[in-house]
Simulated assay, not measured.
Amino acid sequence: MDVTFDEWCEQLQAVEATAAYRRAPRQHHKPMPQPPTPVHRLADRESKVQSRLPQLLERARYTVLTHRSACPACQSGGRCAAGRELEIRLGETQASCEIVREQVERQERRTARQQATPSVRAAQWAEHGGEAVEKANNLCSERRSGSLSEFRSPQLPLTPRDDKAHE
């Protein structure tokens, strides 16, 4: 209780320094990263890009025409740096549209070809199937020893040709 003002200030500074040291620093929470697009929605994303390409192409054409009509260097038959850059970007956009169109056509042809021709495996099963085979498979009858089943023919050898070589 009997403390001078100077001693009280020193004690207060000592207590504040230790208290500040003991306090936890302020936490700054970072936002969670956005999860990647699920696989089943990737095709939808590509279709959105394809639907924007014609708009971008039209916009690039309009920009080039607007620049040509406003630029004195481009009107005189030459090309300024900005006009050249716009024409390069227009060409890149046209190439992108052409690539996408070719990819869509290729995918359509592939889909049409797959739908038009039955699968090879299904055709093979159809060759060897039928009601006769189905009835024979479902038949539950005893067979005599030495008899041929419906699935074998008399030309099928049941014994080896050369017994000595087989031994």
Results as ranks from 00 to 15, higher is better:
E108T: 13
E46N: 07
R68Y: 14
E46S: 07
L53H: 01
G130D: 04
Q114E: 14
E105W: 11
R144A: 13
V133A: 06
E127P: 00
C71K: 00
N137L: 15
E87T: 02
H128F: 08
E46V: 15
N137K: 11
R41L: 11
A81M: 10
S51P: 01
E105Q: 15
E92H: 04
G78F: 11
V133E: 07
G91W: 03
Q107S: 10
S76H: 07
F151A: 06
C97R: 02
K48T: 09
A126Q: 08
I99Q: 13
A81I: 12
V120P: 02
E92Y: 03
E46Y: 08
P118C: 06
S119D: 12
G130K: 00
F151M: 04
L65D: 12
W125M: 15
L139Y: 05
E134T: 13
I99L: 14
L90H: 00
R106M: 12
R59S: 11
A82Q: 14
R110W: 10
S149A: 06
V64G: 00
G91R: 03
A136P: 00
P72A: 13
T111C: 08
T63L: 13
S69Y: 08
A123E: 15
S96I: 15
S153H: 05
G146H: 01
G146W: 05
S51L: 12
D44F: 14
R101N: 12
V100W: 04
A136Q: 06
I88M: 09
A82T: 15
E127R: 13
N137D: 14
A122R: 07
V100I: 11
R79I: 12
E98F: 05
R109A: 05
R110F: 09
G78E: 13
R121Y: 11
A81R: 10
L86T: 01
P118G: 03
V100E: 09
